[in-house]
Design a protein around this nucleic acid. Structure first.
Length: 813
RNA sequence: GCCGGAGUGGCGGAAUUGGCAGACGCAGCAGACUCAAAAUCUGCCGGGGAUCACUCCUCGUGAGGGUUCAAGUCCCUCCUCCGGCACCA
């Protein structure tokens, strides 16, 4: 048959039209086949997909298609993280209502998704800004309220003047807003809603042991640091004048005889009574100075209060200071300073000439000399000059001293976390309304379940003034109290959008359920997620919140699994022609123009070929052209060989079939283990290079097998071309519903083993021998080899290493 | 400062378990086809050297040391880049 020119638009648009409503990718509810749940992180509907999205989805899609061909019942859904600030900003900028703006964007992006033929079950599509979805955010909120996991408190919060909203601690990066680099975060006091994620701190930490198999170590480390569990003791010092306790947290009670002052955070409540007006002013100045600064840059400063504290162990009176490096937000907001055994305390005390008193000596050394001590000793050692505990090793001392405090009632062993409760209140319009009502008589009253969802009103004025725009909607705000029936007001805060993404993957399993967030039986079938794929930027926030939600849902009896995600894969970024893509640089590589210019198959294959999936990939125009050439090469080969004459000699059959089976073997192995799709595609290229070289010497029978398997192997990477080839071969049905090609391990094997011959570790020759040839024979053949002998002449062979099927190395003198 | 990850041709990368460094692609060079160009096909393509030539020698994976018959791969010291954390008591 004459070869055909590869016209990507012709081929892709043809199949696109045929596939449009075919529903090929529907997951089955009751299937005898094993299930596989593969998920890519859902996008924010910004309006366009770029090459970075394509990479994320191409990885997931390759896996989904492979699993399909392997006979799995695959769940591969997609949805929209549809609440968020950009919709409000767009509303302010061009007066498009957020809902309309969002829906338009979703429509545009979905079109691109379909153009790329990602294998999603669109019947399960979820959009988080629709009441059918967010009512369950409200429902979960109320369930947590019932269980005491939701609470309200007045708190100093991070306020970004650009966003005009509150930020979670996690959204503050080096004192600035995570979305607006260089915009310092301000501190404001507001009544906020919180979720008690700290109740689950230990579970979140301990359950990570079960994730080590399937999650990147890096992500687990980041989560461990984020939770920041720290074991130690809480101990009360006492105000000398009144005996009032000042509680401190320390991980080193064993050093307490070396405490030479107590230091309070500038915000510490005790300052109200301890400090005079001038002192309070200094403390306040410290708080303000600290608010926006990189903590590492701030020099330690402090001042004496003039008051004294009593050490509960030694009875010693030590001065009380206030200093900027003590944080109110961690531990108890007060510390004991032990300069001899803590870097920070040392730096501070040296600056202010506070006594440095060593009380720990190295296990094999002497106690440092008190006045001239030059460095801190922060390791564990032997406790000295510490009353009854002298002579104990640090660890033992800590245990006994904590027990002592507990017995005497002035302290206890304690654990502190860096993790804070999750502040979910946002003073914003475009989010899930928090379902409570403020009644002047009854107080805070939850919206009864049967009144959910609390609908976000559509026609409102968005000004970006800072307060929630919902406050200006009387028909939303003014309600009757569900408890007493009197006049009351609705809560106008909306929820952090991380709530939406904390459980969306459960909703995919039962997306249209109107009476429950989902049917637990369906979750029991589909969960855990077998493979989750997304950017590493979500390593902490999204993935910790999701894990937290899962544990709460488990405790509510909704799910049986304690973790949502069995395996996590974090793919690398895509950069463009060597530079990070950004709107401001105008170098964002959009998906739509790519499809038009090169086709979806080329774009997908390029991002898979550019490097291993966990690493960064550089989008390069000429690189994409290379992939395009390759696809054309495949297509031309197939089309001119479809009716391959039966009379061809077939002298190259053995060689070519061997290469074919080696290729199938290699790709199969990669899908099952390490996902190096770049080398998978390289191996298909190698195969095609061999096919071009041997084209005239391939029999009709061999050619038929080659073309079929080539089509099947390409299916996960280039679905359009693969389907087109399938049709050229005269075959019916979707190619990705065929079985993944088998390989014959015997056929894939070479006839002879190639043995590397080295002399003193340097390559000198190759010999070919049957597999399994014994070492002694290998040595004999190697010694006899013509290329090797010059290197042996006049030398003495002192040692021979012969590894069957691999190499012979002769060591000579 | 602490914890990760990375460093290989002009470029992206390959080498899966310590065993032939540079697969595959891009760029480049040369040839074929063409009136010409594009497209396509073929060959060459780390540095230095030897050879009419088939080829051969030698150096070479950020730097320096080490282990080993053998190191891109393992160990130690250091440099650079990227990511995370960073007064967390």
């Amino acid at each position: 048959m004459p070869e055909k020119h590869y016209d990507h638009n012709h081929i892709e648009l043809k199949w696109h039209a045929r596939w449009e409503n075919a529903g090929f990718y529907r997951a089955e509810e009751n299937s005898a086949r094993p299930k596989f749940y593969v998920l890519e992180m859902l996008p924010y509907p910004s309006g366009t997909l770029h090459i970075g999205h394509i990479r994320n989805y191409a990885i997931g899609d390759a896996l989904a298609r492979y699993k399909w061909m392997r006979g799995y019942n695959v769940l591969h859904p997609m949805g929209w993280d549809a609440f968020g600030l950009p919709a409000e900003n767009a509303a302010i900028a061009n007066r498009t209502p957020p809902r309309e703006w969002t829906r338009q964007n979703i429509a545009a992006m979905k079109k691109t998704h379909r153009r790329f033929a990602f294998s999603y079950d669109w019947e399960r599509e979820v959009s988080t800004c629709e009441p059918e979805y967010y009512r369950w955010n409200q429902w979960f909120f109320l369930k947590m309220l019932e269980r005491g996991l939701t609470y309200r408190k007045r708190a100093l919060v991070n306020w970004c003047p650009q966003c005009a909203t509150v930020l979670a601690n996690e959204q503050v990066v080096e004192g600035c807003c995570w979305r607006h680099e260089g915009t310092p975060v301000e501190q404001r006091a507001l009544e906020q809603w919180f979720l008690k994620i700290t109740n689950y701190a230990d579970q979140l930490l301990n359950d990570m042991a079960g994730l080590e198999e399937g999650w990147p170590e890096r992500v687990l480390t980041m989560q461990r640091n984020w939770i920041g569990r720290s074991e130690g003791a809480e101990v009360d010092f006492h105000l000398a004048e009144t005996g009032e306790p000042i509680r401190v947290f320390t991980t080193r009670v064993d050093t307490i005889y070396g405490a030479t002052c107590v230091i309070l955070a500038p915000e510490h409540p005790l300052n109200e009574t301890l400090l005079d007006a001038a002192g309070k002013a200094r403390a306040k100045a410290m708080v303000d100075a600290r608010a926006n600064r990189d903590p590492g840059d701030i020099e330690k400063e402090g001042f004496v209060t003039g008051h004294f504290a009593v050490n509960p162990y030694s009875g010693e009176r030590i001065p009380i200071w206030v200093a900027n490096f003590v944080l109110m937000g961690y531990g108890t907001g007060a510390i004991m300073a032990v300069p001899a055994h803590d870097e920070r305390d040392f730096e501070f005390c040296r600056k202010y000439d506070i006594t440095v008193r060593p009380v720990i000596r190295p296990v094999d050394g002497a106690l440092a000399i008190e006045p001239g001590m030059e460095r801190t000793f922060t390791d564990d050692g032997i406790v000295e000059n510490s009353g009854p505990w002298s002579g104990l090793p640090s660890e033992e001392a800590r245990r006994q001293m904590a027990a002592h405090a507990s017995a005497r009632g002035f302290g206890k062993a304690a654990v502190t976390y860096r993790l804070k409760d999750w502040g979910i209140s946002r003073q914003r319009y475009w989010g899930t309304p928090i379902p409570v009502i403020h009644c002047p008589v009854c107080g805070v009253v939850p919206v009864p379940e049967d009144q959910l969802p609390v609908i976000l009103p559509d026609r409102i004025e968005i000004t970006g003034s800072g307060r929630s725009p919902l406050e200006n909607v009387p028909e939303f705000v003014n309600v009757a109290c569900p408890r007493c029936g009197g006049k009351a007001k609705r809560e106008t805060d909306t929820m952090d959008t991380f709530i939406d993404s904390s459980w969306y993957f459960y909703r995919y399993c039962d997306p249209r359920n109107g009476t429950m967030p989902f049917d637990p039986a369906k979750i029991a079938y589909w969960f855990e997620i077998d493979q989750y794929i997304g950017g590493v930027e979500h390593a902490i926030l999204h993935l910790i919140y999701s894990r937290f939600f899962t544990k709460v849902m488990r405790d509510l009896g909704l799910v049986r699994n304690s973790e949502p995600v069995r395996r996590l894969f974090t793919q690398g970024m895509v950069i463009a022609e060597g530079a990070k893509m950004s709107k401001s640089k105008g170098n964002v590589v959009g998906a739509d123009p790519l499809a038009e210019k090169f086709g979806a198959d080329t774009a997908r294959m390029f991002v898979l070929f550019g490097g291993p999936p966990e690493r960064e990939v550089d989008w390069r125009q000429d690189g994409a052209e290379g992939i395009y050439r390759f696809l054309g090469r495949v297509y031309r080969f197939v089309t001119r060989n479809v009716g391959h004459a039966a009379g061809m000699p077939g002298t190259a059959d053995k060689k070519v079939l061997r290469k074919l089976h080696q290729t199938v073997k290699k790709i199969t192995g990669d899908f099952e283990t390490r996902w190096h799709f770049n080398t998978c595609i390289a191996s298909i290229m190698e195969l095609v290079n061999v096919l071009y070289a041997e084209e005239e010497r391939i029999s009709g029978v061999a050619m038929a097998e080659i073309l079929e398997k080539l089509a099947l192997m390409l299916a996960p990477f280039a679905p359009y071309l693969s389907q087109e080839i399938w049709e050229e071969l005269g075959r019916d049905g979707p190619v990705f519903r065929q079985s993944w090609p088998e390989f014959d391990a015997e056929l894939a094997k070479e006839d002879l083993a190639e043995i590397v011959v080295q002399v003193n570790g340097k390559l000198r020759s190759h010999i070919h021998v049957p597999f399994g040839t014994a070492p002694a024979e290998l040595e004999a053949l190697a010694r006899a080899d013509g290329k090797v002998q010059p290197f042996l002449a006049g030398k003495q062979v002192v040692k021979v290493i012969a590894v069957p099927d691999k190499l012979v190395n002769m060591v000579v003198k």
